[in-house]
């Protein structure tokens, strides 16, 4: 209890320090409600991918395929939506499209997991293979070009706002951020409060002990990859909706950014440790960093250098903290 408390308060202090520093650096331009909402919108797809990735990483696995799955599900969903009759109700279309995308993403996750569970292959390999296959499939299906959406049913999902104009200084709550909130809350509960979540931690902590305690290791492991695939589909839907097209080029490199968010959020790559809230904070910190650098007009190449350094620093800090608190 005490340990968790110290850790949480330290994290909070760090967050406040970052915000204060950032605020000073940006002469107040950062810490406006409008800009915060902006950051949240920018991190939406990365944070959603990172949520799925968190489950995988806590079982001591890794999912490199999510970036490609974003584009594959995006293309498939765009093709599907275009193939549906124009008379269909907009919300029904969005739901059906997401269901299809989630099925594709989930299936890809199942394929990722199968050789891991049955043959003991390293997930690095199976998901690397899926990363190539899914990207290739996205290009094949789209003939290499973005698939523009015919329907405008997705407009509000991608770019809409809730509570618009309720507060004068706020543009309202972007719909994608609402999706993010739902994903974070639901999966935080799944990981933290359910039997399934407990098993995920147990497998990452000691797979053999979990197995001998009756945990169905294969089933749980398969589930986390399926879950990660579904998160990729949700991110794919939001990106497709935002750009009004499913592009085979989206999501390149997203898998690594998601892993970065997970790791900065304090989840151990060795497995057994981590949280959805931590991942969200990790994604948010990376988002702040990007935002601040944008506000300072730092060119994108330099941004990557800084980002790399920060990730390294964050993990060093986390490790040191862990040792000190032990």
């Amino acid at each position: 209890m005490k340990r968790t408390f110290i850790k949480l308060s330290l994290a909070l202090c760090a967050l406040i320090a970052v915000i204060v520093l950032v605020n000073a650096f940006t002469y107040g331009a950062f810490f406006t409600p409008g800009n915060i909402v902006n950051v949240l919108r920018q991190i939406t797809s990365n944070a959603i991918l990172a949520v799925g990735q968190t489950f995988v990483i806590i079982t001591a696995g890794i999912d490199l395929s999510v970036g490609s799955l974003v584009s594959l599900t995006g293309v498939v969903m765009a093709l599907f939506a275009n193939a549906m009759p124009a008379s269909i109700n907009g919300s029904v279309l969005v739901v059906l499209t997401l269901l299809l995308g989630a099925t594709v993403g989930g299936l890809a996750g199942w394929i990722n997991a199968f050789p891991v569970v049955r043959l003991g292959l390293p997930p690095f390999i199976t998901t690397l293979a899926m990363m190539l296959v899914a990207r290739g499939a996205a290009y094949e299906l789209s003939h290499g070009r973005p698939v523009p959406l015919n329907s405008d049913a997705f407009m509000s999902t991608g770019t809409g706002f809730l509570f618009r104009g309720m507060l004068p200084q706020l543009p309202g709550l972007p719909i994608p951020v609402l999706w993010l909130a739902v994903v974070v809350i639901v999966f935080a509960i799944v990981l933290g409060k359910t039997r399934f979540g407990r098993y995920v931690y147990a497998i990452g902590g000691n797979e053999e002990a979990a197995r001998l305690a009756g945990v169905r290791v294969g089933l749980i492991k398969t589930s986390v990859y399926v879950l990660s695939g579904i998160c990729a589909a949700i991110a794919g839907l939001l990106l497709m909706a935002r750009f009004a097209s499913g592009s085979p080029q989206t999501g390149t490199g997203y898998e690594l950014q998601a892993i970065a968010a997970v790791v900065v959020g304090g989840t151990s790559l060795v497995g057994g440790r981590g949280s959805i809230l931590g991942t969200f904070v990790g994604a948010f910190l990376i988002g702040i960093l990007n935002n601040v650098m944008n506000l300072h007009n730092i060119e994108s190449y330099a941004q990557e250098i800084v980002l790399g350094g920060v990730i390294l620093l964050a993990v060093i800090l986390d490790q040191t903290l862990k040792r000190v608190l032990k």
Binding site: R195, R198, Y201, A202, N206, A209, L212, A213, G214, V215
Partner: peptide
């Protein structure tokens, strides 16, 4: 190696087999 998840709490280990 086989009996405990060392990084989990006393409570989580105690209930693991009959969760």
């Amino acid at each position: 190696a086989q009996g405990l998840v060392l990084g989990m709490s006393v409570r989580e280990n105690t209930t693991l087999a009959h969760l």
